[in-house]
Amino acid sequence: MFDLTGKNALITGASGGIGGAIARALHGAGASVVLSGTRVEPLQALADELGERAHVLTCNLSDMAAVEALPKQAAEVLGSVDILVNNAGITRDNLFMRMSDDEWQSVIDVNLTATMKLCKGVLRGMMKARWGRIVNISSVVGAIGNPGQGNYAASKAGVIGMSKALAYEVASRGITVNAVAPGFITTAMTDKLTDEQKTGLLAQVPAGRMGTPEEIAAAVLYLASAEAAYVTGATLHVNGGMAML
């Protein structure tokens, strides 16, 4: 089950905890992968760990010219992009009353606009191939909100709506577009939380623990597989029961 042999995947934010786990899962299922991110050292370390079928392309997703170039570069390296995982994301938290235009815009640019441009950039090849998988990483915050994250919540809710609209348009071409919405996962992003904050958060999680990057990667692997061909426009919530949507 979930054999991705011969498929080529582009994963953004692959230097992060969840992105790295997604890359390992897709690669482990036989896919060739392009690991994209801003920091070359962790990307190269991951590529070295994976060995064959792993390539590194650095890209700053706040640089829209670089974003538009990335799908072409990935297709040159891999031959095609059959699977796109838009995992990269940033936070710039602030209370809504204090949030600057720059804090708002930078999060929307990277989390939503870059995601849109990367989807657009891979569609031509997928339409010709009559096969494609796009998995956009959203967040539980996009569904239920979170204080201090008006920008992040808007971007992640935007990803869900955009994925559904695109899923409609390309379903007839064998391309599925889905979202995965992680809850609280142990990563560098959540390491920044204080113990007090973590205790408060875990009280809202019926599973009683934070999730692991591998548990997100497993959801992505499913949606990227041939077996998930009839699943499109869906949001798969992986959150330990924190929000049963």
Partner: peptide, 8 residues
């Protein structure tokens, strides 16, 4: 979508 593909 066919028209998009034709242009491509």
């Amino acid at each position: 979508l066919d028209t998009v593909e034709l242009v491509m």
